[in-house]
């Protein structure tokens, strides 16, 4: 589409035991775009996301971030890469022993030299953006599922990362909060030129934010392109996906 790819994935194969979950995926993620990874349950979406980030070790293949191979990178170099990446996990993955405020402060305290009062402002504005100003000193156990997810998003974007990965950000959220989250994602993309990779099933969300969609089925990539192109491609699985979601 435009520019050079910020992430280049080549021939990525992932297995759970003998079962092949990703079968030779090759895809490029472009800067400043919202890329949505789509597909039915168990098709390998989350596995693809986690293999990209070395949370799982792929069986074979290559993942390049800004031109650098990250699968073979040493830990120190990879940690530098990770500081440019934010990840929102499916269930939030907040540290339960810390308040929401402290959860968001972790990356800011550990990866920057920012003074405390600046960190405090960043935390408050990030939590305000996700609509959690009221819950700033609460603990994760006191939050609903949707609130946990929003707090986790605030933590993921604490460092204004170059790339934000979101695993099902809208799942479990009401439509209004979900739409507000989409608006925030679009703001992050437009104002900070953030690259965003999202795994989601929410069709409304996909229509609002997706610049590019990657459709997976059975561990293989069926489609990679814009949403209008996906609808015109005449691929039965994709047509069915969008058809059953109509209301």
């Amino acid at each position: 589409m435009k520019n050079e790819a910020i992430i280049e994935i080549r021939d990525l194969v992932a297995k759970y035991g003998e079962k092949t979950v990703l079968d030779g995926i090759s895809v490029d993620i472009y800067p400043g775009e919202v890329t949505v990874i789509l597909g039915g349950s168990g098709c390998g979406k989350t596995t693809l996301l986690k293999n990209m980030l070395r949370l799982y070790e792929p069986f074979s293949g290559s993942v390049r971030f800004c031109g650098e191979e990250i699968l073979t990178m040493d830990e120190k170099a990879f940690n530098r890469v990770l500081q440019q990446i934010g990840m929102l996990f499916q269930n939030g993955a907040l540290l339960n022993s810390m308040s929401v405020y402290d959860n968001v402060s972790i990356p800011l305290e550990l990866h920057t030299k920012l003074p405390r009062h600046i960190i405090d402002r960043i935390i408050r504005v990030k939590l305000h953006l996700v609509g959690l100003s009221e819950a700033i000193y609460k603990f994760p156990s006191e939050l609903s599922g949707g609130m946990k997810k929003r707090a986790a998003l605030a933590r993921a974007m604490a460092l204004d990362p170059l790339i934000l990965f979101c695993d099902e950000p809208s799942a479990g959220l009401d439509p209004i909060t979900s739409a507000a989250l989409d608006d925030l994602i679009l703001d992050l993309k437009q104002q900070l030129s953030m690259t965003i990779v999202i795994v989601t099933h929410e069709l409304a969300s996909i229509h609002r934010i997706a610049d590019r969609i990657i459709f997976l089925e059975g561990g293989k990539m069926l489609f990679n392109g814009s949403l209008p192109d996906a609808k015109r491609a005449g691929i039965p699985q994709i047509d069915r996906f969008f058809e059953v979601g109509k209301f």
């Binding site: 408050r124 100003s133 009221e134």
Partner: peptide, 18 residues
Amino acid sequence: QAVIDTFTTLKLEVQARD
């Protein structure tokens, strides 16, 4: 200006700790 408008803390109310 767009980034400032998004991230400014000046309009935020300070939440008191319990």
